[in-house]
């Protein structure tokens, strides 16, 4: 019998600890499929950050470094600058990348570091139990915005792709969504393209994946996917923000 679907080789045989309905598993799979299809796992060094995916090295098979909160782009810079022929990616959440790690991500992009950033935006801090993230939408409830996020009290959500797309060092920036199969297929192409951009030494690449956090959103898995479609995409429009014409 022909095998038509199986676990990517770049994922280990470990069952994941993520909550039911969480899209981390899908995001991991897309990264692993890209590694398989480009045959780069053996040359890849992944940078795990702080958040629910702190131990993504238990799932990815490539060499990995777990690093301090927000510093993944700096750690990746150190790895890549000393090993320019290796493939280096970071896997970061919205609190990690857009709050504590704002300086690191902006400067890695501005320098045009030839690394790939997988950015998980689920508009909330997952691991520390549902606090407001820099990407939390206005009026969204969280454990630190129990009355909803208010612009006058908490400021506005940060649109990472739009912001980084202003930097000349950024080669490829795209926002995709993981809420249905059609969008997941598109997300897969984006992730793969980001790695190819790096392989071809074209500079900094980042893919933002609109993701769920059913546990901290207080929704069931289906409702959570629908929330991406109904609430997140209108605020975080999908598309290529930089490098649309980039051929890889």
């Amino acid at each position: 019998m022909a095998i038509i679907f199986q676990k990517p080789k770049a994922l280990k045989d470990t069952s994941m600890h993520y909550c039911p309905g969480c899209t981390h598993g899908i995001a991991h799979r897309l990264v692993a499929e890209a590694m398989d299809e480009l045959n780069i796992e053996g040359d890849t060094i992944g940078i795990a950050s702080v958040g629910c995916s702190y131990n993504s090295y238990d799932y990815f098979g490539c060499d990995m470094i777990q690093c301090p909160h927000g510093r993944a782009p700096a750690v990746a810079t150190g790895v890549k600058r000393s090993n320019p022929d290796k493939i280096v990616f970071t896997y970061q959440g919205d609190g990690d990348l857009a709050a504590i790690g704002t300086a690191e991500i902006i400067h890695a992009a501005a320098r045009g570091e030839n690394i790939t950033v997988i950015f998980i935006n689920n508009t909330i801090y997952g691991m520390t139990s549902g606090q407001m993230a820099p990407t939390t939408l206005l009026n969204q409830f969280s454990t630190t915005t129990p009355y909803g996020r208010q612009a006058d009290l908490h400021g506005f959500p940060i649109k990472v792709c739009e912001m980084l797309a202003t930097l000349e060092g950024a080669a490829y920036i795209e926002r995709v969504s993981l809420h249905d199969v059609k969008h997941i297929r598109k997300a897969k192409e984006a992730v793969k393209k980001a790695f190819k951009v790096q392989q071809q030494k074209k500079g900094f690449s980042l893919v933002e994946l609109l993701s769920t956090c059913p546990t901290n959103w207080g929704l069931n898995p289906v409702e959570a996917l629908n929330r991406i479609r109904d609430e997140m995409i209108p605020n975080y429009p999908l598309g290529v923000f930089r490098g649309e014409s980039l051929e890889v």
Partner: peptide, 13 residues
């Protein structure tokens, strides 16, 4: 902060 983390990354290799 970034500098020491770059050292962390490079030293890890």
């Amino acid at each position: 902060i970034a500098a020491v983390n770059m050292v962390y990354g490079a030293g890890s290799t």
